[in-house]
Simulated scan of single mutants.
Amino acid sequence: MIYEAMKIHKEDFGHIPLHQQALAWGVRDEVIDGSVKPRPSNDVELKLIKMK
């Protein structure tokens, strides 16, 4: 039934996403600017972060 409902929705109505959640990041003052680069998967490779 869920498959059928989704099929009807896709064929007859469709939708336009109106919201995309922004990622919020915060770092301590000891972290060197530019060393934290979040990836599309919403994580950070910790071995690349540089500290003062």
Rank of each mutant, 00 (worst) to 15 (best):
H15E: 08
P17R: 02
M51V: 12
K10R: 15
D33T: 07
E4K: 15
M51W: 10
Q21N: 12
S41Y: 12
G26W: 03
K10H: 14
W25Q: 07
E11K: 10
M51K: 09
G26K: 05
I16Y: 06
K47Q: 15
K50W: 02
D29P: 03
I8S: 14
K37Y: 05
I32C: 00
K37L: 07
H9K: 15
E45Y: 10
R39F: 04
V31L: 03
V27D: 04
K10F: 11
K37I: 12
V36C: 01
Q21M: 08
K10Q: 14
K50G: 00
P17I: 00
P40H: 06
P40R: 07
I16A: 01
M51E: 10
V31W: 01
A22E: 05
D29I: 03
L46M: 08
Q21T: 12
K47I: 13
M51I: 11
D29G: 05
F13S: 05
K47L: 14
H19L: 08
V36Y: 00
I8W: 14
G26A: 08
L48M: 12
L18K: 06
L48H: 13
L48Q: 13
G34Y: 04
R39N: 09
D33Y: 10
A24K: 14
E4V: 15
K10D: 14
P40M: 07
H19C: 07
M51G: 04
G34I: 01
E4S: 15
E11L: 12
V36S: 00
L48E: 14
D43V: 05
H15W: 05
I16V: 08
A22G: 02
A24E: 11
M1R: 10
I49T: 02
A22H: 05
D43E: 04
S35Q: 00
H15A: 12
P38C: 01
D12T: 09
M6P: 04
K52M: 04
D29E: 14
V36L: 03
G34V: 01
E45G: 06
A24H: 12
P38Y: 01
E30H: 06
I32S: 01
D33F: 11
S35D: 02
V44E: 02
W25V: 12
G34L: 00
K10I: 11
A5L: 15
P40D: 11
G14C: 03
G26V: 07
K7F: 07
K47P: 05
I16N: 00
L18C: 10
M1A: 13
W25Y: 10
